[in-house]
């Protein structure tokens, strides 16, 4: 028995010695996080559904029988019976109150809503991360000056600002990005600045300084990769906020311009006819709600995966 196990041990030692020259692969924090994320079923399913919704927004118009601005006069004559959702008429989601195909309009609205959500989050993250990292990294007077600017901006009435922009420049989709992006980077900048400040005093930054690494490389190689986790989590939670905000603006009638539409605008129209044609509310609403749920689950999954304190 003893002899046998000793033999096994010596075999193992020989095998290890053979392996000695092979480079052992480590597992980085990113790989760790990815593994944890993919173990989270809710997050993976949500990611899959978001993928489907994006596919729907990009390729859904291939299957539409009508364009999103074309009025079906026949359906308009009797919206409650001829305009209800059915496969035969080609109006999968029914028609809206003007006889336009709701399926095509939902596809179009999804494009706008997702675009607004993702693009304005990107703008906010880009500005916020750079501004916050620079502010925290430079520190001192520059830092307090930059942070006072953020405070002044965040004290401005945001809704009022958006309405003013819309009134002055007309209702353009690009303005929605600008308006939302320009205001929502403020929180991001605060978060990144705080992270940078705490990282700046870590010993590995001092070690990099002692090695003569330039300030720019310290920022790019040491600080940004370490704040990226937080930024990613915040971004995934920011996108649904942006979508809701765009819907809110559209619901107030300040958003996208006809004949273009968005989920918020569709919901607004649906609410008006809710009592006789419930589908006009339900279809866009379902898309909005499912998307928000999924983004929030993905954000939660990312947070659990990237939060080092869970370990």
């Amino acid at each position: 028995m003893l002899f046998k196990s000793r033999q096994a041990v010596s075999q193992l030692a020989a095998a290890l010695a053979d392996n000695d020259n092979a480079v052992l692969e480590g597992r980085s924090l990113w790989q760790d996080a990815r593994r944890r994320f993919f173990h989270n079923k809710a997050a993976v399913v949500s990611l899959f559904i978001i993928g489907l919704i994006i596919l729907f927004a990009l390729g859904g118009s291939q299957f539409a029988q009508y364009s999103y601005e074309e009025i079906d006069w026949l359906a308009l004559s009797d919206p409650v019976s001829l305009g209800r959702p059915s496969i035969e008429t080609g109006h999968y989601f029914g028609t809206d109150k003007l006889g336009r195909d709701l399926y095509a309009r939902t596809v179009q609205g999804s494009q706008i809503s997702l675009l607004v959500g993702i693009l304005s989050s990107l703008v906010a993250i880009l500005i916020g991360t750079l501004y916050g990292a620079a502010s925290g990294f430079i520190g001192g007077r520059v830092d307090s000056f930059m942070m006072r600017i953020v405070e002044i901006l965040s004290a401005m009435p945001f809704m009022f600002f958006v309405i003013m922009l819309m009134v002055m420049f007309g209702r353009q989709i690009i303005l929605i990005f600008v308006a939302i992006g320009a205001v929502s980077w403020l929180d991001m900048a605060r978060i990144v600045r705080g992270q940078t400040l705490s990282l700046k005093n870590k010993e590995f930054i001092e070690a990099a300084n002692a090695c003569g690494v330039s300030q720019w490389r310290i920022l790019v190689r040491h600080i940004v990769p370490n704040v990226l986790g937080i930024v990613l989590v915040y971004a995934s939670l920011m996108i649904p906020g942006m979508i809701v905000f765009e819907s809110f603006i559209s619901f107030l009638g300040l958003g996208v311009q006809e004949p273009q539409t968005s989920w918020g605008a569709l919901i607004n129209e649906g609410v008006a006819t809710m009592e006789i044609a419930l589908w006009q509310l339900l279809f866009p609403l379902t898309f909005l709600v499912v998307t928000l749920f999924c983004f929030n689950f993905v954000g939660d999954g990312l947070r659990d995966a990237l939060d080092p304190k869970e370990r």
């Binding site: 480590g26 010993e203 590995f204 990099a208 090695c211 690494v213 370490n226």
Partner: peptide, 27 residues
């Protein structure tokens, strides 16, 4: 050069040790 007090805190957690040790060479 300098050696620091807290061994783990003085190494960037996102870099592998080959990159960490090579950083002065790279600079």
């Amino acid at each position: 050069q300098m050696i620091f007090q807290d061994p783990l805190a003085s190494l960037n957690p996102r870099m592998n040790i080959g990159d960490i040790i090579a950083e002065p060479l790279q600079t």
